Simulated scan of single mutants.
Amino acid sequence: MSDNKTETLKKLPLDSWHRGFGARMVPFAGYEMPVQFEGVMAEHLWTREYAGLFDVSHMGQVQLEGEGAADALEAIVPGNISALGAGKIRYTLLLAQDGGILDDLMVTNTGRNLYLVVNGATKHDDIAYFNAQLPSDVTLSHMEDSALLALQGPKAAEALAKLNISPMQPGWPVPTDLYFMEAGPFMWGDIPLGISRSGYTGEDGFEISVPAEHAEKLAAALCALEEVKPIGLGARDSLRLEAGLPLYGHDMDADVLPVEANLNFALSKARREEGNFAGAEQVLAQYPNKTDKKRVGLLVNGRQPIREGASVVDADGNHIGAVTSGGFSPTLQKPIAMAYVPTALAETGTEITVEQRGKAISCTVADMPFVPHNYHRKPKL
């Protein structure tokens, strides 16, 4: 059975390119994905200091078109999409009718349509949900012929500038003039690119949507630069963990509501007041802090990493929560984790006990991000 499953794994547009760089490939979200090239630790630290190129083409890229697309999307997400200006991006949550989180996603107002990036493991379910919920005058297009690359790290802008990418229209900013959560259409020679200043590592960087047939040319041009190396899924996971960013299917799922996931910022004030999104009654009943459990960060007191599935226990050894992500932090040189704990124990500095393989491990609730974000934000006036 596992052999048949392996045979049905999809290949990324850059599959052979990754293998040429010596990538170790693993199954992930229905694809064969590069988990590492040189090693997770080296790749993680390189991205923190220079720039790493991540292939995230397994993610779902979707376009919504139609005059009522923003209002229609607001029926199933709590973000203020109708107020999103052209060239701006918003993080939001796809919610079930009971308020459970079906996915988290990025929404960009391109000025012509809405461009969505959803998680790879959930993209087909997401699209089915969109199609069931959106009105007939809103058209959904799944961009299956596009690849998605993420250039992340403090040298990302410096590297991208060397490719001489130009705005699609005169007078528009070049990619490196974008601020965090801004996007635009660009041209690299005769190749169209959609570039956003965003990512999921906590570092400055860009996500680049490129026609799949040109993905290898772009990846090769970037990795020919001294600042850039290809980076695998392993380092992407350790970077996002240090950044305190939840991973769908691990740190949140359909059984978790936004406040429990500590994602209050995704519930915009205007939408809270309107209360007209999926699951609003259940979601707002918990806002801002009326919930039994909450996602928190944990610093492990010791050198033993704790992993997803480890149990949070009380003084009598009773199960009261669970670790959802965990690993060794290359930047901090110590183990860190995320977990759901009773809200009464969610305050920073609270001592928590985690049981893993019969061993009790002491942890301390910590503020997230564990490593400060390095986003290129627009200066406040």
Rank of each mutant, 00 (worst) to 15 (best):
G358I: 11
A220G: 06
S209A: 15
G184T: 07
R48K: 13
G199N: 11
N276S: 13
L239R: 05
L267T: 08
L267H: 04
G249W: 03
H58K: 11
H319Y: 03
Y287A: 03
I191H: 07
G321H: 02
P175N: 07
A254G: 05
E7N: 10
D190R: 13
N301A: 12
I127F: 12
L298R: 06
H18C: 13
P167A: 14
V228M: 05
V228K: 01
D251K: 08
P34C: 10
K378P: 00
M1L: 06
G199P: 01
L263Q: 14
E242H: 08
E260V: 08
S238A: 10
A157G: 15
V283N: 07
I165T: 06
D103S: 03
G279R: 13
F130M: 06
E158C: 02
P288N: 01
E355D: 01
A70R: 09
L73N: 09
I76Q: 02
D255A: 14
R377N: 12
P167M: 12
S136H: 05
A315T: 00
G22C: 15
H142W: 11
K123C: 07
A23W: 08
D316K: 00
P246D: 10
L298P: 00
K155N: 02
I191N: 03
G39D: 08
V323E: 07
N318L: 00
G100V: 04
A159S: 10
I81P: 00
K5V: 07
A212I: 06
K5P: 01
A261T: 14
M41W: 07
D125M: 08
D103T: 03
A157I: 12
S268W: 15
